[in-house]
Amino acid sequence: MSVHLVTGAGSGIGAAVAGRLLARGDELWLLARDAGRAKELAARFPGAHTLVGDLAEPSRLSWAIGHQAPPDRLDSLLHVAGVVELGRIGDLTPKVWNETLAVNLVGPAELTRLLLPQLRLSRGHVVFVNSGAGLTAHAEWGAYAAGKHGLRALADSLRAEEHAGGVRVTSVYPGRTATPMQQKVHQQEGKAYDPSRWIDPESVASAVLAALDLPRDAEMTDVTVRPGV
């Protein structure tokens, strides 16, 4: 039985990934931003364990994890949580930049650092669910795209550093996916939201699991997922 820790399991792609892993009998750990969210996740995913730690406050993650009992080994760390706030560069405040980069880049970097000993022990796998914005930046997506471009760099550097020890690292770049985040994006864009036009979160979860389940003689480094016709 493999042991996985998932961020962002409350909705969208994270919920789809967590549900698939739990259904196949793996041991599941879920990161929750606070105790209330932890209770919600425990009720939604019976049998899963929870850890409380807020990615929006990266400097407090070490203290938070240190006062709990994280798993002593990890087969995968799956970074799925994220936030988005659209806006033109000339209008974005430091508050938006700091909040966006904390959750989308600095928090994942710090959580990875804290759990690397467990991942090294298991020759585990780190998966970053990135975004098409991590490959191409468009107008009004500056803060989000900057964080996702940084997340790509984080993944590439981590892979180069940990490859010799057997830790695999994968970046998954989904296009627009039918999630609550996408609904928020449409509201900010002033567009009608039709989830049937976009990728089902389960399809992205399938890509994530394909990377996890690849035999040890190979590694998926970058996986791009786009809406079908």
Score class of each variant (00 low, 15 high):
Ser2Pro: 15
Thr7His: 12
Ala9Met: 05
Gly10Arg: 11
Ala15Met: 05
Arg20Trp: 04
Arg20Asn: 08
Leu21Arg: 12
Arg24Gly: 11
Asp26Tyr: 14
Leu28Gln: 07
Trp29His: 10
Leu30Thr: 06
Leu31Asp: 07
Ala32Ile: 08
Ala32Tyr: 08
Ala32Ser: 13
Ala32Cys: 10
Arg33His: 14
Asp34Gln: 03
Ala35Met: 04
Arg37Asn: 12
Ala38Tyr: 02
Lys39His: 09
Ala42Leu: 03
Ala43Trp: 02
Pro46Met: 09
Ala48His: 08
Leu51Ser: 03
Leu51Glu: 05
Val52Cys: 11
Pro58Glu: 06
Gly66Ala: 01
His67Arg: 14
Pro71Val: 08
Asp72Cys: 05
Arg73His: 15
Leu74Phe: 11
Asp75Leu: 12
Ser76Lys: 12
Leu77Val: 08
Leu77Thr: 07
Leu78Cys: 12
Val80Gly: 03
Val83Gly: 02
Arg88Leu: 13
Ile89Asn: 06
Asp91Arg: 13
Leu92Met: 12
Trp97Gln: 04
Trp97Gly: 01
Asn98Trp: 05
Ala102Ile: 10
Val103Met: 02
Asn104Lys: 04
Leu105Tyr: 10
Glu110Ala: 09
Leu111Lys: 06
Thr112Glu: 07
Arg113Thr: 01
Leu114Cys: 03
Leu115Phe: 14
Leu116Lys: 02
Pro117Asp: 09
Ser122Cys: 12
His125Ala: 04
Asn130Leu: 05
Asn130Val: 09
Gly132Tyr: 08
Ala133Ser: 15
Gly134Ile: 06
Leu135Trp: 02
Leu135His: 11
Thr136Lys: 14
Thr136Val: 15
Ala137Val: 14
Ala137Cys: 15
His138Ser: 14
Trp141Phe: 14
Tyr144His: 13
Ala145Ile: 09
Ala145Trp: 05
Gly147His: 11
His149Cys: 03
Gly150Met: 09
Arg152Trp: 10
Ala153Leu: 13
Leu154Thr: 03
Leu154Val: 09
Ala155Arg: 04
Ala155Gly: 15
Asp156Ala: 14
Glu161Pro: 02
Glu161Ile: 01
Glu162Arg: 08
His163Pro: 00
Ala164His: 06
Ala164Phe: 03
Val167Met: 10
Arg168Pro: 05
Arg168Leu: 01
Val169Lys: 00
Val172Arg: 05
Tyr173Thr: 00
Tyr173Met: 04
Gly175Thr: 03
Thr177Glu: 02
Thr179Gln: 06
Pro180Cys: 06
Met181Cys: 00
Gln182Phe: 04
Gln182Asn: 13
Lys184Asp: 13
Val185Glu: 15
Val185Gly: 07
His186Thr: 02
Pro195Ala: 07
Ser196Val: 10
Leu209Asn: 12
Ala210Cys: 13
Ala211Val: 12
Asp213His: 10
Asp213Thr: 06
Thr224His: 06
Val225Glu: 00
Arg226Glu: 11
Arg226Ile: 03
Gly228Asn: 09
Gly228Leu: 13
